[in-house]
Write a protein that binds this DNA or RNA. Sequence first.
DNA 1: GAGTGGTCTAGACCACGCG
DNA 2: GCGTGGTCTAGACCACTCA
Lengths: 252, 252
Amino acid sequence: MGSIQLEQQSSEPKYRHLKTVLTEALDTEFSVGQALPNERELAARFGVARATLRQALDQLELEGRLQRRRGVGTTVAPPRVGVDVSPRRHTWPGAPGDSWVTTDCAPAVPPTAVARMLDARPDEPVEVVHRVLVTHGQSVAAEQLYVPAAVLVTPGEAAPAGPPATGPERGRHVLARLQRLRPDGQDRSVELGSAGAPEARRLDQLPGAPVLIVTTRYAAAGRTVAAAVATYRADTCRLTFGNQGTVSLSAS
Amino acid sequence: MGSIQLEQQSSEPKYRHLKTVLTEALDTEFSVGQALPNERELAARFGVARATLRQALDQLELEGRLQRRRGVGTTVAPPRVGVDVSPRRHTWPGAPGDSWVTTDCAPAVPPTAVARMLDARPDEPVEVVHRVLVTHGQSVAAEQLYVPAAVLVTPGEAAPAGPPATGPERGRHVLARLQRLRPDGQDRSVELGSAGAPEARRLDQLPGAPVLIVTTRYAAAGRTVAAAVATYRADTCRLTFGNQGTVSLSAS
DNA sequence: GAGTGGTCTAGACCACGCG
DNA sequence: GCGTGGTCTAGACCACTCA
């Protein structure tokens, strides 16, 4: 990246041309993990204001090419890790092979959007199970699983030995009871969002960072019995859906 | 949104507080399609610089709450439209029920990343079929489908009557031949990206706008026979995966 | 304490859509 | 031609990490 000046011809914005130049430099002159010069240095080298340079860096970070940490610097990001969200692996919360870790649980009234998804009255109490997904030593996703209290009571069965009113143990208790319902299927959707303050803390990133929001509706006996809202770090991960056909492809 | 001043207490950045205030205003005082005051007006009303206000608007646009058009203004965005990308509906390119429209096709050498996905030599020629997906009168996705020329030739069959060297008709020809291979399965992944110049033009948005990139690998007879890179507008759509279980949920 | 990225300001001009 | 959002500047200070 020895370039000193940014020659430009057309009406293309500077930051976009800058992004192109930086992308080529990343492809040819940098390796994963390597640190870039700091922003003031880079801006001076290209002869632009720091805000303009940052516009280019912002997009490169959005695309997962760069990793920026306050107080530390900017480095070349590793390729995104693939996270399998296909129903085969991620079948049913708490099922064997489920690699999520339950971190907390408490009863609450759900957000209205969640209540609608559950076909529940807006004021109906639900259990909220908080879980995180850790791979390669880093948190990649945080999830809130909503289960109406009503679906957890089994008719003709005595109330179970009292679980704690809150905490991971209560969450495991809820998942165990959910397990007893036979899963029929799930609807799932993916959209772009930005991390709220609590998710950002759990995912070790700044609030407002881009995330992929995966919303899942779980069904048993033809009824919606649970809903999950999971936020995946968009910068570091890629959602994979495994093989959706009849014959396996060999892993490449 | 009659609020005139932005009182603040903690170390929370102004733009984030601003975003919270605006979100509440959108939820309570605005309806879909309604226009907001212009940016200079809003910035003055909240007592911040325009750049700070724009930081808040940027995030709200990323979340699909706002729609901004240069020369026009900012309006409240409608809810994102769900686009079904489940294998049931989106089975095999060109299959009946496939709602994509073929716009162009030409032979080319694929990008190296695509060649690797196809298990092809980097210089092996492929057919590139361009397609767009239109729903509710707007383009929501643009796709490039890569098919190695080798998989299209049928041994012991005469070369077909010459298709045009380029254009939609050639694309339909390629898809028709691809149909003859029996589909076995597909691998799919979703990640965040930003629109390049050509995709931006086809999706009627600005370059750099956030998109969801869906990469699909199609297999037949245990081999990878095609790969598709589709970019969906992240602002206006939500990818849905239908029912992935054994029993249908009633549509809500 | 030195150095990094994150936030913020108060301007300016440009490109675009529309009447 | 006017009003809109998009780009750009040249500063400033803050919050954070690390030696």
